[in-house]
Design a protein around this nucleic acid. Structure first.
Lengths: 279, 279
DNA sequence: AAAGTACCATTTGTCAGACAAATAGGAAAT
DNA sequence: ATTTCCTATTTGTCTGACAAATGGTACTTT
């Protein structure tokens, strides 16, 4: 009568073991940089074979929770999670959502604008002289006529990352990671004319100046101008990219060893079709 | 003389294969729900053994990029990333950073307040009647005196998640995931007195009423009050928790059949010792 | 005696083959 | 026609082994 109809097993041995070790790390039973037992010893402890242990460890390694080294002093160690790594992971996950069409660029752009507005207000109080210096360097780089388009975009990203860093709140930095990096591929598709570049650089300079004067409102205005230009440019680039759609798609699978790669025709148009929700 | 001194191998075969498959998915060569070859076939294609392929697939499975099923119609399929899963992953990563002391609760609390303030402004325009209804239900639940402490906290989280959802911006929802969920364990440590509960419920009601009237400023004021109460409560709980260290924690893991593992000295105190960052 | 070198022990990385488990489809029996 | 059983296919796990890396140790040489 008292048969348990649930709670048997649903996710395989390796998955369960991975969860147990992860839980141990989360609870602090395994401290950072602590070496956990050998794979063979773990196999004995959990009463499974070594490949199963290895699969469990691989799952954890994929999440940057542990690292492994060979040799006598080697073994498996608990990784200390870094803000930079977490940030990278979030950016990747967000980019994946975008490429799969689960997130619209319009939503991301709005969130980015709101978050950077927030950063403008906080950075006006907290920015350091070093961050202002970095901004100046990027602005002068952006005014270099010989800069390639992608270098220009990279510099743009660095400027805005500096703006966010100037807010001096790591949690806010982390929360902004996705919306900043996920927007970069779209921006990279734009080719800025010389006049646009100057405009962008001027707006960056305006932000920099406002932050130097600790004037949050002025920084916010400059940021808003920048965002307006960006959306205008994006719409123009989108319109220009809708015409040449003749590019033949390569057969989807077809990948043996090296022949991957190809088009990046990630349906620009569909993603851009995001709207405001009708009440 | 033209020897390549770099780019040999740095991360093992399985890692390289995982990266290749991941890149194929990212570039669209492998579409969603598409079945990729069997493990044996992949092993032949990449000229490695099946365990190596399996380790590569496990790495991808740990990132929710693929799923596997057994049987004739089984195999490995490309997963469609979901906002909910991505959100969960971000929440986990943030919680890990907090438990490792890489993120201070003060920074998270500030970011949460700013993000929710933002949501108040947006939600005042965009909230739906259904979301108002959900808020009403949670508020009435929070006024139930028989509710347990953790159920009260869970209801609190649901209320604020509804507030964020009412902003109707998936990207903002995603960005807020970490700071909302990462703060919950800290809140769970608090035991609310009856008077505090009534206060929280009243502030929730004030937010709800302001959103119903589409008054963003009023919602923001109510939210600010709520946050003030929360930080006050937290500081009180923190001070109270520093004295009584005698409380015995229940064994967290509680192994089933295997006699593995041992102590789980879940140093409570270390996690709670977070403070404000000195500028 | 000090320093360099060769060897060795330990641990993860990879390979090979095999069996177990799950699952869908088809064949056979009622 | 429906149910039941069998079978083929694919992943999950086990066993055993060898390869590669890496630090320590003992030996040799200066």
């Amino acid at each position: 009568m008292s048969i348990q109809y649930q709670g048997l097993v649903t996710h395989g041995l390796a998955s369960q073991i991975a969860d147990k070790i992860k839980q141990a790390i989360l609870e602090g039973a395994l401290k950072v940089d602590e070496r956990l037992p050998t794979e063979e010893e773990l196999a004995q402890r959990f009463a499974v074979s070594r490949p199963t242990i290895r699969e469990a460890l691989k799952r954890l390694a994929a999440q940057n929770l542990i690292r492994s080294r060979r040799g006598p002093t080697g073994g498996t160690f608990v990784n200390q999670p870094t803000q930079a790594e977490t940030r990278l992971m979030m950016a990747n996950a967000t980019a994946l959502l975008v490429s799969m069409g689960e997130l619209s660029l319009a939503d991301i752009a709005e969130t980015r604008q709101e978050l950077e507005s927030l950063c403008c207000r906080l950075a006006a109080e907290r920015r350091t002289d070093e961050q202002l210096q970095v901004m100046r360097e990027e602005i002068s780089r952006q005014r270099e006529p010989t800069l390639s388009d992608q270098d220009f975009c990279a510099s743009d990203v660095r400027f805005h990352r500096t703006l966010i860093a100037a807010a001096h709140n790591p949690a806010l930095d982390l929360a902004s990671a996705g919306v900043i990096e996920a927007l970069q591929p779209a921006i990279n598709l734009m080719v800025f004319r010389f006049r646009d570049r100057a405009q962008v650089a001027d707006q960056h300079a305006a932000i920099h100046q406002a932050l130097m004067a600790r004037d949050g409102k002025a920084a916010l205005c400059a940021l808003t101008d920048y965002m307006d230009v960006l959306t205008t440019q994006y719409q123009a680039a989108q319109a220009a990219n809708e015409q040449p759609k003749i590019s033949a798609k390569t057969t989807p699978t077809a990948q043996t060893s090296k022949t991957s790669k190809a088009n990046t025709s990630t349906s620009l148009s569909r993603q851009a079709r995001s709207k405001k929700s009708a009440p």
